[in-house]
Simulated assay, not measured.
Amino acid sequence: MAFYLIYINNGVIMIILDKIYNFKGNSICLVNQDKFILYNTLNSLKKNININDIFEITPKDGNIKISDIRDMQEFLLYKPNFSEYKMIFIHEIDKMNIQAANAALKILEEPPNFAIIISTTSRWHNLLPTIRSRLYKILLPNPDLLDKIKNKFPEFYINLSFSIKNDFECAHYILNNPKKSEQILNTIKNFSNINIDELIKYLMEDDDFVENKILKYESFFEIIKRFEKLNLIEIQSIIDKILSYKNKLQDKLKTIKFFSKMFLSIYHDAFIYSLTTYWKEFYSLNMVYFFGFADFELDFQKIYENTQWCENILKSSVSNFNFDLTIQTMFLRFMLAFFKNKEE
């Protein structure tokens, strides 16, 4: 049931409150390396619901214990008294001991339909897999760098948003190298006019130099946008060309994880598109037009499944994937979730 929202900025509070009914009966986890941001976000949310319908768990002596979970379960036996829903806050959910984690599994998976459980962590991958699978994950980035670029270089922020929001190395580069960033932007603006083979060259660049990474990210989105106008045979031809680069790659697992990351961003934007009116929170603002006007019917059950599948690949440290099969499957999963009409 879990899905993955990779980027939401300061507007997270507004988004959650505006569409809170979408999360009733579910468990959310806010993730950031800075605990202050996490605590501040929850404190802001607390102001919008009656205190009598809030239950808060904070680690004591470095742990969340089974007694805390039992108290939470008892609190959820009864419907809210003063609000439309009850809200549970679990600070630093990664601090649950084994007994508490096991006791929490059922309630995290199926909270009462009048309740929302919001947890926080700065160590997502330290959570037990059984806990992670029961949480909607929302990653809150540190906003300072993003705001500086947005205010100083708004055109960069709009057109290079994925690099800025998801790769801090790229964000620092864009902020500190405006002339070179302008050159990169001009290249990207011309992506719609170049042929698919040139786009794939950018996409499959194996050098991690920051300029190449920005072009690599944006070439992926340009290719995805073209899928709408192509038939299955033409799309398969593009996939085959991507696979033809296999023997030129130094690290195939890194490339597989790159594609997982990029497809997760598409799925993130699909959730933003569906659940909110805040399209400015898209991972890639260049995809706003695609979501607004493309001819597709999103299958959210498949998107949930694809999200979990891609995230499992990102967590893997073992290079035991069949490159061709994994990349082919990744594209196929995307097609089935977005373009069922092409099966005809």
Rank of each mutant, 00 (worst) to 15 (best):
M1K: 14
M1N: 10
Y4R: 07
I6L: 15
Y7G: 08
Y7P: 03
N10G: 12
I20W: 01
F23G: 05
S27H: 02
I28R: 04
V31D: 04
Q33E: 12
N43G: 09
K46E: 15
K46Y: 10
K47W: 10
K47Q: 15
I49K: 08
D53G: 06
D53N: 07
D53K: 01
I54T: 07
T58R: 13
P59V: 09
K60F: 09
K60T: 13
G62M: 06
N63D: 12
I64Y: 02
I64D: 00
I69W: 01
I69S: 01
E74Q: 12
E74P: 04
F75E: 09
K79D: 14
P80M: 07
N81G: 12
F82E: 14
F82T: 14
Y85L: 13
I90L: 07
H91G: 07
E92W: 03
D94T: 07
K95A: 10
K95G: 05
A100S: 01
A103G: 05
A104H: 03
A104I: 01
A104N: 01
L105I: 02
K106A: 05
K106M: 04
I107M: 05
L108R: 00
P111V: 03
I117T: 02
T121H: 01
S122Y: 09
R123N: 11
R134K: 06
Y136L: 11
P143V: 11
D144M: 12
D147K: 13
P154G: 08
E155N: 10
E155Y: 07
Y157W: 06
L160E: 02
F162K: 03
S163H: 03
I164W: 05
N166F: 09
F168H: 10
E169C: 12
I174A: 05
L175M: 08
L175I: 04
N176H: 08
P178W: 03
P178M: 07
K179C: 08
K180A: 10
E182Y: 08
T187I: 13
T187R: 13
I188G: 00
K189Q: 07
N190R: 00
N190I: 00
N190K: 00
N193Y: 13
N195S: 11
N195V: 05
N195M: 06
D197V: 14
D197E: 14
E198Q: 13
L199C: 00
I200P: 01
K201V: 13
Y202M: 01
Y202W: 03
M204D: 03
E205H: 10
D208P: 03
N212E: 11
N212Q: 10
E222D: 11
K225C: 02
K225F: 00
L232S: 09
I233Y: 12
Q236E: 15
I239F: 04
D240E: 15
Y245K: 07
L249A: 06
Q250C: 12
L253D: 09
F258V: 05
S260D: 04
K261A: 11
F263A: 09
L264M: 07
Y267V: 06
D269M: 04
A270D: 05
S274A: 15
L275R: 09
Y278M: 13
Y283C: 15
S284P: 06
N286W: 02
V288K: 06
F290H: 02
F290L: 01
F293V: 11
L298E: 06
Q301K: 13
K302R: 15
Y304Q: 12
E311H: 12
K315N: 12
S317I: 14
N322S: 15
Q328K: 15
T329Q: 14
M330Q: 08
F331Y: 09
L332W: 10
A337L: 08
F338R: 02
F339N: 01
N341I: 15
E344L: 11
